[in-house]
Write a protein that binds this DNA or RNA. Structure first.
Length: 563
RNA sequence: UGGGGGGUCGGAUAAGGGUAAUCCGGCAGACUUUGGAUCUGCACAUCGAGGUUCGAGUCCUCGCCCCCCAGCCA
């Protein structure tokens, strides 16, 4: 979007930013995306990135990437690397502006000393439990710490010794001296620094005192010249605290604007829950294709374009909301419909023998690679006497409105011939294992010279030429729209969908797929979009179903079952 | 019973005193060598009660409901 020539409605943040520019409160726009490197990025972060990077770009400004790495015990380089990869993959660029809160540790420490000197911070010897006790409750004010009125000299000395490593973890904290009776609990003498003797993934053992996020975030923004600090709703209560620090330090203040974080139906978007899914073995890792992580979506077959389109469509507001996962799926289908090459693949094969087709004969039929994109060209697919078709495409006793194959019925084999079912072969259990058919040589390519019509076109592969494959059919990870909707005492794991993964072996795909590369995405005609998984090895293809095609017949069947 | 936010079709967003619109989903139909795509149509909404006004989703008052906050997490 370029501002001015668009009549698209602006969300409240863009309106606010534009007003700031017009009113001269800021002369430029500089935002930041501030992940903590303690987990993988998910679709909720994609929304935040689209806002942070997107708004900066629209207003001709810049967006920094800053890792909020103030807690060494939770963070790891594994995450700082995966996060950067995911941001780039999504299509955003921080150029040379990669920062870390840990870059500012020395400066933050100076800020702390400044506040001590001004009598606005003190070293407190209360234990964690005591601090909690003294904090009061939501409805009752807290009590002042007995250490609150130490002299500036004592505080300076004690804080220096905290930094020097003289005291064990948890024995003391540095606190801001604000208001123990504030209705806003964040203002009841919040902790600024805590003692943690741990190795930080970037600063190593240089520090044993680490700033709290609240003491680092606003100042980091200020140091970087951030004008608009866009974040989620839960930080609304923290804004007065950030402003208190910034004012007490007399440094630049960005404007913080909060928006509602993303929720998507049938999945969870909290790092804590995602971590439990991984550690509990409910999924196969952060990049399991069922995960809403960017790495999971990528492996599933989602494109950056589809994800960004989704983020554009969900809008930005302050209302708590739950977006229908069907919208995400729609965005993927829409993107892939334009771009994904079409191929034929049979997931649950049923053998077909064409009685009147000469044994040993092979024809190459021409197939369109993408009807939505003529420039994608055509390819050739081998056809012969023995084929596989989809089990679902045959019914011995077809229900009403079922147009596909059945005894005596004629259908079209896509790009090939009309085919008529003349016999059914069953095994000892009475299950259909093979169809005996005849083809009409005059219908090559799929049109009948006599003008007769068939109601259905089905896909197929030539048994002698097809390539074997495994296919993983993914479904929603949870059975409930809101996985947290559980009875007392239970948690979201109760709502896991036991059928979120179905592995199909014995699938057959057309030979053109033999050399495809992991990450390639195809439309298997009439079925859905499938992405070649990195697990694939030569001669052993593994496809992940990203999303199925819309299925009109499934809907009819469902209606028939109900009605 | 403190403090901070929020309530518009089933879901998500618009409308900033003047026709409640758009997208997803649902339903129905057209078309179709993918029961895909595309196209057409239909249904469904301003939390409640007062008030101001020619006119209120929008302004005022009083309610109701929902979310967040009591980490030395972010």
């Amino acid at each position: 979007m370029t501002l001015g020539d668009s009549n698209q409605p602006m969300d409240f943040i863009r309106v606010a930013v534009m007003d700031d520019l017009k009113a001269g409160r800021y002369s430029r726009v500089h935002t930041r995306f501030p992940p903590e490197p303690n987990g993988y990025l998910h679709i909720g972060h994609a929304k935040a990135m689209c806002i942070d990077f997107g708004i900066a770009a629209e207003f001709g400004g810049q967006c920094n990437l800053r890792f909020d790495d103030t807690n060494p015990v939770k963070e790891d380089v594994e995450y700082v690397e995966s996060i950067q990869q995911d941001i780039r993959w999504l299509g955003f660029d921080w150029e040379d502006r990669l920062y870390y809160a840990s870059d500012y540790f020395e400066r933050l420490c100076e800020y702390a000393v400044t506040l001590i000197t001004k009598g606005k911070a003190y070293v407190c010897d209360l234990s964690a439990d005591d601090i909690r006790e003294y904090r009061g409750t939501l409805t009752e004010p807290g009590k002042e710490s007995p250490y609150r009125n130490r002299t500036v000299e004592d505080n300076l000395d004690l804080f220096a010794r905290m930094r020097a490593g003289e005291f064990p973890d948890g024995s003391r904290t540095l606190r801001a001296k604000i208001d123990m009776a504030s209705g806003n609990i964040n203002l009841r003498d919040p902790v600024m620094y805590r003692i943690i003797h741990a190795t930080h993934h970037r600063t190593g053992d240089a520090w044993c005192v680490y700033p709290m996020y609240d003491f680092a975030h606003g100042q980091s923004d200020s140091i970087e010249g951030i004008t608009h600090s866009l974040c989620s709703l839960e930080y609304e209560d923290h804004r007065p605290l950030y402003n208190w620090y910034l004012d007490a330090l007399d440094i630049d203040r960005p404007r913080q604007i909060e928006f509602a974080r993303l929720n998507v139906s049938f999945t969870v978007l909290s790092k804590r829950k995602l971590l439990r899914l991984v550690q509990g073995g409910h999924v196969k890792g952060w990049d399991d294709p069922r995960m809403p992580t960017l790495s999971g979506l990528r492996r599933r077959g989602y494109t950056p374009e589809a994800i960004r389109d989704f983020c554009d469509r969900i809008g930005v507001a302050k209302k708590d909301s739950m977006v229908d996962i069907a919208l995400l799926e729609h965005c993927l289908r829409e993107d892939l419909n334009k771009r994904a090459p079409r191929v034929m693949g049979v997931l649950k094969p049923l053998r077909v023998v064409i009685e009147n087709y000469p044994e040993g004969r092979v024809e190459e039929v021409a197939a369109v690679n993408n009807p939505e994109d003529p420039s994608a060209g055509t390819r050739t697919v081998p056809f012969s006497r023995v084929l596989y078709i989809e089990q679902d495409d045959f019914r011995e006793n077809p229900p009403p409105k079922y147009y596909r194959f059945a005894p005596g019925r004629e259908v079209r084999l896509r790009y090939a011939y009309f085919l008529k079912c003349v016999g059914v072969v069953k095994d000892a259990q009475g299950d259909v294992v093979e169809l005996t058919c005849t083809y009409d040589p005059a219908t090559r390519g799929g049109d009948a010279p006599d003008g007769r019509k068939v109601k259905a076109t089905i896909h197929w592969v030539s048994a002698a030429h097809a390539v074997p494959a495994r296919v993983r059919l993914y479904d929603r990870l949870f059975v409930k729209e809101d996985p947290d909707d559980v009875d007392g005492g239970q948690d979201f794991l109760e709502n896991l969908n036991p059928d979120s993964l179905e592995v199909l072996t014995g699938c057959w795909v057309e030979p053109s797929l033999a050399e495809s590369k992991p990450g390639s995405i195809y439309q298997f005609e009439r079925q859905g979009y499938f992405c070649l998984d990195p697990d694939a090895a030569k001669g052993s293809l593994v496809f992940n179903r990203a999303v199925s095609l819309k299925d009109q017949w499934a809907r009819i069947e469902r209606a028939q079952r109900v009605g």
